[in-house]
Design a binder for these strands. Sequence first.
DNA 1: TTGCACTTTAGAATTATTCTAAATCTTGAC
DNA 2: GTCAAGATTTAGAATAATTCTAAAGTGCAA
Lengths: 144, 144
Amino acid sequence: MKARSHHHEEQHLTERLGTTGLRLTPQRQQVYDVLVSKRDHPTAEEVFIRAKKAMPEISHATVYNCLDALVKSGLARQVQLERGATRFCPNMHEHGHFHCSDCGMIYDVDLPHELPCVAVPRGFRADGFDVTIHGLCAECAKQK
Amino acid sequence: MKARSHHHEEQHLTERLGTTGLRLTPQRQQVYDVLVSKRDHPTAEEVFIRAKKAMPEISHATVYNCLDALVKSGLARQVQLERGATRFCPNMHEHGHFHCSDCGMIYDVDLPHELPCVAVPRGFRADGFDVTIHGLCAECAKQK
DNA sequence: TTGCACTTTAGAATTATTCTAAATCTTGAC
DNA sequence: GTCAAGATTTAGAATAATTCTAAAGTGCAA
């Protein structure tokens, strides 16, 4: 069962990376595994630290390369929330992010199924969007 | 007329800054003027360069301080779009940002008046949101 | 008019990201 | 199979973005 789902994942990665002319490498697999196994929107640096545990020779630049590869082929999203490091998210379903301005934690939130159409200027071509909500998470809201 | 609106602006800045216990200083005024006079969502570095023209002794750290002060008191918004420098926007009306993934230009876009309610987890307190649309601007779309 | 809190300044320090050049791996043509 | 071409990884240097620090300046209130 485990092996089977693992095989499926591998196939999925190979397929998606293929659409951008990229290969599935052990490093890309590893970086993807890091993202999937703890969905706390880690920074590249955090991904590096976690990936290093399983693959001690992996380098900094490779982690950035891998993250870029995953983003380019639609396997992960970059999440830009505040000044400082960019974060990454392997959840490719349509969703928004809630950012607690106190503790900094990030939560995925569902977006309404029917989203209103945003009018973009004539000639512009939109192909995606990000929604971020700012506020306090339950923990931090309680403490105020 | 010019003087009058200038006076109004000053009053407005003093007032808004006051709500956060901050003062209106020549530097903060200058940084705000930079944001307002060319609404191209400049980075802190760009603000620094522009502010320096009118106020050659202004320092890097001060620009960051001033931008933070403006953001804290609701006179400007930080816009986080991609890896790299944070950008700033003095348009405090409800709006979204269109980011051209080709030329990198950023445009303000109107959001529909009636926005759907996003369900946040129990106990969470939301107090703002950002919407960013990715795609190609008219110029770049034409070239493809 | 003195003191205190707030600000600014220059420059150092830190953090985040990208670049570089050499080594390694993969793949397809032969 | 073997080799060249291209893709990928690596360590570490370089660059970019941001924050910190300590000293000096400013202005208001007692």
